[in-house]
Design a protein around this nucleic acid. Sequence first.
RNA 1: GCACCCAUAGCUCAGCUGGAUAGAGCGUUGCCCUCCGAAGGCAAAGGUCAGAGGUUCGAAUCCUCUUGGGUGCGCCA
Length: 580
Amino acid sequence: MNLFTDIRALVIDCLAAMADEGALPRGLDTAAVTVEPPRDAAHGDMATNAAMVLAKPAGLKPRDIADALAARLAGDPRIAGAEVAGPGFLNLRLVPTAWQAVVGAALTQGKDFGRGTLGAGQKVNVEFVSANPTGPMHVGHTRGAVVGDALASLLAFAGWDVTREYYINDGGAQVNVLARSAYERYREANGLTPEIREGLYPGDYLVPVGVALKDRYGAALLDQPEEVWLADVREFATEAMMAMIREDLAVLGVTMDVYSSEKALYGTGQIEAAIDELRSKGLIYEGVLEPPKGKTPDDWEPREQTLFRSTAHGDDVDRPVKKSDGSWTYFAPDIAYHYDKVKRGFDLLIDILGADHGGYVKRMKAAVSALSGGRVPLDIKLVQLVKLFKNGEPFKMSKRAGTFVTLRDVVEMVGPDVTRFVMLTRKNDAALDFDFDKVLEQSRDNPVWYVQYAHARIASVLRKAAEAGVDTSDAALAGADLATLDHPAELALMRKMGDWPRQVEIAARANEPHRIAGYLTELAADLHGHWNKGNEETALRFVQDDVAVMTRKIALARAVGVVISAGLAILGVTPVEEMR
RNA sequence: GCACCCAUAGCUCAGCUGGAUAGAGCGUUGCCCUCCGAAGGCAAAGGUCAGAGGUUCGAAUCCUCUUGGGUGCGCCA
């Protein structure tokens, strides 16, 4: 149930009825009509802009439309009052039972409360992490992983058919570097001194890979030329890295539906097919690119290349798909990969990338636009970097070459729940400060703690109520008589809960899971505020002497708890029953 | 040089994809605190939404330009 869409539908119905009676012209476009909570709660429960939006096309004064609409809306049993305000806003007040029904809905629907139909079952592919399989995941990947996973959950909750996907960059030069690095560790495992030359990966996470290589090959690969061992070692090392990455993701609570391999695109004709598809649309040609103005590389020389006419689909310059030696650029397999996603029938593609890939956005959108004939939108979310702090001081791990702050480090220090929540407190395109101490702090300004504390408090009163003989099952609470739950503070809390389905929709529409974290923080603040009011006004407390009274109060508390846990579920955070 | 992102209270940030008097937290100031669960509560002060134009009934939000920061710019992915 979404009270806001319900009331909006009512408004639209009333407008249609007014048109039938000649009070409004027929055929007005009502798409811009909104029903939202007013900025100032004193204005009422909901506000609609209908009169202002329609005034011009209808050739009427906003005031006149608003008056007529108000009169008509007042006839609905859910509407307790409708008054015109400001430039033509129509402020609505709902009868208490309308809000009390939100509590009932939360209790009956449980974790499904707020689930929406915005996605209408359409297929969306969320590609995220896609870290090179050359080492453990670091903090930057962590944020991408969390944002992608939460976005996927959010879209699923909003009615999309979601696929979580990881693209393994196992086809480029960097996996050869990995192989050479692993080979040195293999030599080391055989008692030789490794030669970690400049440009190789020095991290000691490859030491066990070297040992494993020795277990498999013994000394057979020693003193052999690279041609002999490169492919085998590369495959072995890549698999080892992917196993490690999967474990890292598991630690964070992320499970992918599909792992796609770049390497698998080579030699199968898929890249050629994708480029041919573009060629058939006249978007592939041989040409020479201009050097970028103001920053000409030292070794620049004009070169004829195979180019994709991405400018025909909104890019700034055309992009090469083949290197000068005739091999594919990294862009070519990416085109093929996205072509594959289009062919798999997705209605929407989302890529989560690091902000350093910003220059990549336009060309990829151009490619998807061209390959899908404009059918499939590609939304690319750039995730900004995470700045680590410890006690307010910038935090760096030991300077030893090859060591950096890994996903594993972060999760081991603060736990997956805190990691995830904090990563979702900022919009993806803004840099995030992550302070190892502050995220564990038990205080008002730590949103993780604040939201969890609210949930724990609710769990606490539920336990108390159960001890006092209240049946605290959701089914029983849903049957409580809520009619007397009409204190302004209680109704305010219900209004906040009633906004939950709407927040889900807003967040899903914008592909912005961080909004869920923001909403939960607000809901927690309201719960705590309500709790504090109970200190003065005992009638507002959840725990009451009279069992019947307590049952209704507990129903309200539990309903808030349901919304918090539904929200946390989207973020992938486990709600706690008690604070320790 | 070009492209993309960012700029909101002293600090850290929200801000419903155009709505009413721009909101929280921290910090500051002043009161109150044996209260279901302690890790506080209430209130006040604090703003040229970087700047200038424009679109609109209405702009922090959209467009243009300027300033200041970040990222990227053929044969790396």
